[in-house]
Simulated assay, not measured.
Amino acid sequence: MEKNLIVAFGGASPEHEVSVLTAMQAISALENSPYKIRPLYIAKNGKWYSGEYLLDLKHYEDLDKLTKQASSCHFTHNELGQAILTEVKSGLFSKNEEYIIHAVLTAFHGAAGENGSFQGVCEMYNIPYTGSGVMGSAVGMDKVTAKALCKSAGIPVVDGTDFFENQWVDEQDNILNEIDKLNYPVIVKPVHLGSSIGVKVCPDQETLIEAVEIAFRFDEHLLVEKAISPLTEINCSVMGSSRDCRASVCERPMGTEELLSFKDKYMRDDAAKGMASADRVIPADIPDSLSSSIQDTSKKVFGLFNCSGLARLDFLVESNTENFYFNEINTIPGSFSFYLWKESGIDFDQLLQELIKLAVSTHQKKNGRVLTYETNLLSQKAVKGIKGLKGNK
């Protein structure tokens, strides 16, 4: 029987285009795999589409034409209770296409695709999917919650303060006083975004206020942290389950500025390669002891957040002291961080197939548990009790 692999990507997110790049890379890498690739593209307005037309990156240059050529789609169950992807065909005599889902490869970045919402949809339909579950995805997307958990577990994080847009409007002076205590320069970050969108290093209060106003265009919740200087960014990927995982080699990404920007990551001449196009040193040119400590900490955070599948963890290192701080976790990293695992002897297609097998295995273990609880809660006696409550109103 054909194994239909749904590659899900896009979404209503500032990182929409980055997600498309990651998905196209994955589809290309899986060209000779045993799976039949079925694209699930979520447009910027939230509508779901599928169809062969979505498999060509060039077609994404005209999104209006793209969605007209594609078919709308949705998840449902067939008469056997199997999860299926239904492609809705237009035309009086056209019949919808139905594909039994083997697994979903999630290739979203940011917003509802990476924050646990789409993962929750898969859980509702009992569909295997790659990457972290609802909790790990949600925590990973929330920088404030993630850092609070790390701090409680003894994992170092940079000092900072967070606030919402309504607080900024009502209590701006108090917030600025708290930020002043951090000492400039500071960094402004949207709490729920990645890809360095809305991130700005601010040397003074005037620059800060401008950066805050810009960042609120993307997120209603902001985080301001003390800027580490001199700074070295070090990243590490982790793969497996929260109880059994392994770390990749570390990398030192290189940008035109001290802090890696969206432009450094994705707007290069070879941007079609996604994160794989950015300059980096692999393995990172740091002492073995520091590399080992960051790898161990990466696995600890992965387990703490109950993550699974694959993630990339980013750290900030004080170059002159080698003290390092957890910065963020990307539960669906750009290009799936395949370039880090390549150094460990795992090719991109092998990496993706391992993630798919892990997703299916995790799903089977979950379904092996008792998923229902027999009870007579809806018995006649219970129904009478409810009627009695209504009568007392």
Rank of each mutant, 00 (worst) to 15 (best):
A8P: 00
G10Y: 03
G11F: 13
H16W: 03
E17N: 04
V20K: 07
T22W: 00
T22A: 01
Q25F: 00
A29N: 03
A29Q: 03
S33N: 03
S33Q: 06
P34C: 03
P34I: 01
K36Q: 15
K44F: 03
N45L: 06
G46N: 09
G46V: 06
Y49K: 06
S50V: 09
G51F: 06
L54Q: 08
L57D: 05
L57V: 14
D62P: 05
L63G: 01
D64C: 02
D64E: 15
K65P: 01
S72E: 15
L80Y: 09
G81R: 13
G81M: 08
Q82G: 01
E87H: 08
G91F: 14
H102K: 09
A103C: 12
A103F: 14
A103R: 12
F108A: 13
G110I: 13
A112V: 04
N115I: 06
Q119D: 10
Q119T: 04
G120H: 12
G120K: 06
M124D: 07
N126S: 11
P128E: 04
G131C: 04
M135A: 07
M141N: 05
D142H: 13
V144W: 07
L149T: 02
I155V: 15
P156R: 12
V157Y: 02
V158M: 15
G160D: 10
E165L: 11
E165C: 02
E165T: 02
Q167C: 02
W168K: 07
D170N: 13
D173C: 09
N174V: 00
E178G: 02
L182C: 12
V186T: 11
V188R: 10
V188T: 11
P190Q: 09
S196W: 07
K200Y: 05
K200E: 14
V201R: 10
C202T: 11
D204E: 14
A215V: 07
A215W: 00
F216S: 05
D219P: 04
D219A: 13
V224S: 10
K226W: 03
C236I: 03
S237W: 01
S237P: 04
S237A: 15
S242C: 05
R243K: 03
D244F: 01
D244K: 13
R246E: 12
E251C: 11
E251Q: 12
M254F: 08
D269S: 14
D270Q: 10
A272M: 02
S277M: 04
D279Q: 10
V281P: 07
P283S: 13
I286M: 07
I286D: 01
I286G: 08
P287K: 08
D288R: 07
D288N: 11
S289I: 12
S292N: 05
T297M: 15
T297V: 08
F302C: 14
F302D: 12
F302Q: 14
G303N: 07
G303M: 12
C307V: 08
S308A: 13
E318D: 13
S319C: 00
T321H: 08
Y325C: 09
N327Q: 12
I329W: 00
I329S: 00
I332F: 11
I332V: 15
G334V: 06
Y339W: 09
E343R: 08
I346W: 08
D349K: 07
L355H: 03
L358Y: 02
A359N: 06
V360C: 13
K366L: 15
N376G: 15
N376H: 07
G385S: 06
G388E: 10
L389M: 12
